[in-house]
Nucleic acid binder design. Structure first.
Length: 459
RNA sequence: GGCCCCAUCGUCUAGCGGUUAGGACACCGCCCUUUCACGGCGGUGACGGGGGUUCGAGUCCCCCUGGGGUCGCCA
């Protein structure tokens, strides 16, 4: 059985890189009928935040990623790690190091000055004397002094790292709490994780973790290191790049399936296919098709996908989504016409809401350029003619309104634009928007007349 | 800086020794049209450079260049 996991540290919101990692793991587990676990890496008690945890869970819920079993918290498993640390200590595979943080910093400083790579000098590795008084020791693992650490990465291929590149890294802090590279290996093994799909930035942690697996005789999972997501300029993604928080996409009016579709195609592909439903992703995703190179984030592609999913959303879903943006059309008797007309042209739900408001609410002002272009020649006579015919009629459907426009066009031997342009300004205050017949059917006869008169009176 | 990873249109990518180097977004035209979109059609546009290997290289090897990652008592 395939068991994957997403293991964030609760130090901030879930960002899109993290979401993609989570998605890949989720897809791979779901595709194989396996398990997808959520584990919170909160061993550094000082850095944890309750809000961050909530934010991560909220984002998961919004995009629809579910996990198997309960959320695992490493902070609640310290007794387990403690036993393993003791085991390594007893077996001589780990040792107490009495070097203080200050001493370590000083050593690093010196090494840097000499142009060397900063690293622990293993001074307590074989120490058997009297420990210095008053120093709470850390526990370090005994990394091999020579040889290579080799593993097969599912994305990058064979990775060979010289043992000398791996320090005797700390597995327990001086306060006794265990550190990341130690607990991650133990938990992955104990929880039966078979496939670890994670960011590229963890590539160097892998040999360290392999050391832990080996020292403890635990089974090593399969690793996949996914390349990073870069910003639009091709540089490392940072908080300065704006929308990093997954929930920010909701606030901007993106649909979760659009975001997921966008992210799944960043670093992964399946031939020429661009549109993937969640079901298709689950069916087709395979980490062997993950790219080796980093990919730049590209907003217009996300917008295109979002527009696609909006177009294909049923109107009653849109009705609900619109409410987050202050548009309530649940009880509007022309909401189908409204939504059908608008969902073809909106890139985000936010835009959809703005366009809906432009129709539902009479224009506050008339766009100057639009007026200049539309309100000239016999425009007043034409609009009055239309208004008179409208008053006598009892239109309901868009086609009824369309027929009325046609009457004017034919009676006066003019083009559609001659009436369409001023009418559009009257109705929407500007030159663009959906079909006029639709707009009139949506707002109704009385409101249409009101808007026409308002324009006529203002000029 | 040491070590490691990566490199096809502006961007996301297909390609897995023989292709007119394909698709998508964006961009530009044309069509549709009462406007703006949508949609349809068409177009501009890429194998970073240099050496090899091979009858033949975007595909394999090496070097350079460029980009990224990493070197914490963070994860």
């Amino acid at each position: 059985m395939v068991v994957t996991r997403f293991a964030p540290s609760p130090t901030g919101y879930l960002h899109i890189g993290g979401l993609r990692t989570a998605l890949f793991n989720w897809l791979w587990a779901r595709k194989n009928g396996g398990k997808f676990l959520l584990r919170i890496e909160d061993t550094d008690l000082a850095r944890n935040s309750e809000d961050a945890l909530k934010a991560i869970l909220e984002a998961f819920e919004w995009v629809g990623l579910d996990y198997d079993g309960d959320v695992a918290y490493q902070s609640k498993r310290f007794d387990i790690y403690k036993r393993y640390i003791q085991k390594l200590l007893d077996e001589g595979k780990a040792y107490y190091c009495y070097m203080t943080k200050e001493e370590l910093d000083a050593l690093r400083e010196e090494q840097l000055q000499r142009g060397e790579r900063p690293r622990y000098d293993r001074r307590y590795r074989d120490f058997s004397g009297e420990p210095p008084a008053g120093v709470k020791p850390v526990v370090r693992i005994k990394a091999p002094l020579e040889g290579d650490i080799v593993f097969e990465d599912g994305v990058k291929g064979t990775i060979v790292i010289k043992a000398e590149e791996v320090d005797d890294f700390i597995i327990a802090r001086s306060d006794g709490t265990p550190t990341y590279n130690f607990v991650v290996a133990i938990d992955d093994a104990l929880m039966g994780v078979t496939d670890v799909i994670r960011g590229d930035d963890h590539l160097y942690n892998t040999p360290k973790q392999i050391l832990v697996y080996e020292a403890l005789g635990l089974k090593i999972p399969k690793f996949y290191h996914v390349p990073m997501i870069l910003n639009e300029e091709g540089k490392k993604l940072s908080k300065r790049d704006g929308a990093m928080d997954v929930m920010e996409y909701k606030r901007m009016g993106y649909l979760p399936e659009a975001l997921l579709n966008f992210l799944v195609r960043l670093g992964w592909s399946h031939g020429d296919q661009e549109i993937f439903s969640i079901e298709e992703m689950k069916e087709l995703f395979d980490p062997k098709d993950i790219n080796k190179s980093a990919s730049a984030y590209n907003l217009s592609k996300l917008q295109w996908l979002n527009a696609h999913y909006i177009k294909n959303s049923p109107n009653d879903r849109l009705v609900g989504l619109l409410e987050d943006f202050g548009v309530y059309v649940r009880d509007h008797d022309r909401k189908e016409i409204l939504l059908d007309a608008l969902k073809e042209r909106a890139k985000t739900i936010k835009e959809l809401a703005e366009m809906a408001k432009e129709i539902l609410e009479a224009p506050q002002a008339y766009d100057e350029k639009a007026c200049k272009k539309a309100c000239k020649g016999e425009w007043k006579e034409i609009l009055q003619d239309f208004a008179q015919r409208l008053e006598r009629a009892t239109p309901h459907l868009p086609s009824d309104y369309h027929d009325l426009i046609k009457e004017v066009v034919e009676a006066r031997q003019i083009g559609f634009g001659k009436i369409g342009q001023p009418l559009r300004v009257a109705l929407l205050g500007k030159m663009s928007g959906p079909d006029l017949a639709d707009v009139m059917a949506i707002v109704g006869k009385d409101e249409t007349l009101r808007r026409i008169r308002a324009l006529l009176e203002s000029k």
